[in-house]
Amino acid sequence: MDIFIQQLVNGLVLGSIYALVALGYTMVYGILELINFAHGEVTMIGAMVALTVIGLLVGVAPDLPGILVVLGGILVAIPACMLLAFSIEKVAYRPLRKAPRLAPLITAIGVSIILQNLAMLIWGRQYVSFPPLLPTMQFELLGAHISLLQIVIMALAVSIMAGLWILVERTRLGRAMRATAQSKEVAGLMGVNVDRVISATFIIGAAIAAIAGVMVSAYYGLAHYYMGFMLGLKAFSAAVLGGIGNIAGAMLGGLLLGVIEALGAGYIGDITGGFLGSHYQDVFAFFVLIAVLVFRPSGLLGERVANRA
């Protein structure tokens, strides 16, 4: 039983990270119907910038408490990612807004490759390790080990999601976002500054991605110019699973994907008597994704696909 609870905790932490990154995919898709494949790389840049700042801070002020150092890293990474996402949107996507949908999609993949190589040039090919700054406090929960960092990651994911929901549903900017999502042209006629709303969407998604990037590198103890790729792919799958364009869906999809992966990898070997092993971890997650798409093409919480097309 304690093994099962541990697997559940593993899955929820992994899922919270997926969910944070998935939010960025789903927000942009909700408004532009563009799959921003460069989003995973924005996460990576966030982690790298934060690590650089953390390295500098440790060098300059070695007596500073670890939490403040990490916080300093996050506080620099957020505006850096915001600026990056703003420029990406302005340079790569805005000129193509009226182009066929395939064009910005391919551009997004291009931006992702450019960012990866840029990061490789700046930070090198090496894995960058995250210094042991955060407390490694552990709790026992029904026999499962759970660390303070894991609790922080889950709490952060939930509160960011809640904050985003309030932003979209309860503020002026949120109303403008929803209007733009329904129809850019009509929203523009009603006095919504569509360009600004779209920029804002990218910027908010990037800020969340920066936080997610720092969390991932702190949790696994490393960062790498390549880390955004697989993370982005999984987060994108989570967004589709939950219903792309839907904020609560991204959260649900992320958590679900994390738990499916953990339980799948943890038990498949024992259940099938070693016939299928834990190398089917990813297959398992994507199998569920395919099943959901076959029976519910708009995702678990997605709607309005029919009248969009």
């Binding site: 953990a262 943890g266 834990s278």
Partner: peptide, 22 residues
């Protein structure tokens, strides 16, 4: 007692390690 698998791109091993812990 156990033979588990991962891949050369992975960073999360908590699922297989938990299973091994059992």
């Amino acid at each position: 007692v156990a033979r588990e698998f991962t891949n050369d791109r992975a960073t999360d091993f908590s699922a297989i390690l938990t299973s091994i812990k059992g």
